[in-house]
Amino acid sequence: MRPIAEGLFTDETSPRLVGGRNRETGRIVFPCPSGKDYEPYPLGRQGTIWSYTIQRYRPKSPPYAGPDDFRPWPVAYIELPGEVIVEGRLTNVEFDAIRIGMPVELTFMPLDPAKPDSVMIYAFQPIGDKQ
């Protein structure tokens, strides 16, 4: 797959998000900042929904690089236990079924589903709802 950015996902069969761990304080952030204070730190793949909303209008381009044909998508903050809360889309879930506290896991999806060579973005989906 072609990730939306270099160094954002680990290079393994089930990729993980690459966060950053502060070498002094241990604080974990996402994505991994440049510079020497943080070392790359692969994040856990499972967490719970901390908050969410539905993006119901097409973001302006630039910077948005998604398809012109816009369909609303949910965007959430996911608490990865013991690590950090990360922002990302939700997928494979009905809008009405989304709840704070819902267990979710990391997955990947094309930014433009109509394009075979689309870059891939990360997202989260309800656990047990595999494609």
Partner: peptide
């Protein structure tokens, strides 16, 4: 912030 953050639709 990195460019991908805007490309993915989060600069909102």
């Amino acid at each position: 912030l990195p460019e991908w953050y805007g490309e993915a639709g989060y600069m909102i």
